[in-house]
């Protein structure tokens, strides 16, 4: 397969003016996304969420997004007008947020929210939208979709809420799904279930997935490729299953600081941050050299 990347980003910068001058949340990152599961890992403040949001044009002024290139299937989506962005957002690129409690409307039934979102993007009758919503709820393995359609968000559990979000986001068949910490509000047991549902849907539909998370183990298990972000830059790009072979001291430090059941230790190694990580040369091969689909 040699199709062009779904998403191609070069030298992306996100800046916010502050009283102390410009704050650069993302400082010139390059990556391509094919039909793959791409993990973006980093600590809070590393710029991983800002990267996801900038792709969807969700950085609000006075924040600024600049890039040499930000193309979605060959078409530039950098700073599109809100009107044109709306044709893409939700329909062709959509996003699952961290906490279903805050991203579902509390005063609208689940069914109405899914059908409304779907009808925004597809011209279909109310009945068709209803059928589609039921089909999507089945696809995310909700056993009793008719009942769930009539319930309000507070009446469903966190895990079910997140599955509803995924159903809603995947209904218009987007080409790219951006998942920003989709499981960190969930329990371990429910987490794996939600991940595997998302995994199946992404595979079946041949979508590209950007999976933003701070959980190294989970990303290693779930993704194909991982970008490690530190202070607004990608410091390393690795195939997920070779995460333990990471060469950058930051990645190694993150991995070492995790307690492990199979390797007890008295003290956990603590990450000593070095200023050089902010600006030194990057170990990562440039994103365009190991693109899965080829350019």
């Amino acid at each position: 397969m040699t199709d062009a990347p779904l998403l191609s980003v070069r030298n992306l910068r996100v800046t916010f003016p502050t009283r102390q001058g410009l704050f650069q949340a993302v400082r010139g990152i390059d990556f391509d996304l094919g039909r793959e599961r791409l993990g973006v890992v980093g600590e809070s403040g590393s710029g991983k969420s800002m990267t996801g949001r900038s792709v969807l044009g969700l950085i609000r002024p006075p924040g600024r997004v600049e890039a040499d290139r930000m193309e979605f299937q060959g078409q530039s989506i950098l700073n599109l007008s809100e009107r044109r962005m709306r044709k893409i957002r939700g329909q062709r690129i959509s996003m699952v947020m961290q906490d279903p409690k805050f991203s579902l409307n509390p005063v609208m039934t689940v069914g109405r929210q899914i059908t409304e979102a779907y009808r925004l993007h597809r011209r279909v009758s109310r009945a068709d939208a209803h059928a589609k919503a039921i089909e999507m709820l089945r696809a995310v393995q909700i056993r009793d979709p008719e009942r769930v359609m009539d319930s309000y968000p507070h009446e469903v559990s966190g895990g079910m809420g997140q599955r509803i979000m995924i159903a809603m986001m995947l209904a218009p068949d987007p080409e790219i799904l951006i998942a920003d910490e989709p499981t960190s509000a969930l329990d371990v047991s429910v987490r794996n279930e939600v991940l595997s549902i998302m995994d199946n849907l992404v595979r079946d539909r041949g979508m590209g997935l950007i999976f933003i998370s701070h959980d190294l183990n989970m990303v290693a298990q779930f993704c194909d490729r991982v970008l490690i972000m530190y202070a607004g830059r990608i410091v390393e790009t690795l195939p997920a299953r070779e995460l333990h072979k990471a060469r950058h001291p930051y990645t190694q430090g993150l991995l070492a600081s995790l307690p492990r059941l199979d390797a007890p230790q008295d003290r956990l190694p603590v990450l000593t941050r070095q200023d050089s990580w902010r600006d030194d040369d990057l170990i990562a091969p440039r994103a365009d050299t190991d693109l899965p689909g080829g350019l």
């Binding site: 600590e43 809070s44 701070h214 959980d215 190294l216 430090g253 993150l254 600081s257 995790l258 307690p259 008295d266 003290r267 956990l268 190694p269 603590v270 990450l271």
Partner: peptide, 14 residues
């Protein structure tokens, strides 16, 4: 907390 910070707090508690 982040994993790196988690390690610091766990060490502190120990």
């Amino acid at each position: 907390l982040d994993v790196s910070v988690q390690a610091e707090i766990l060490n502190l508690l120990s």
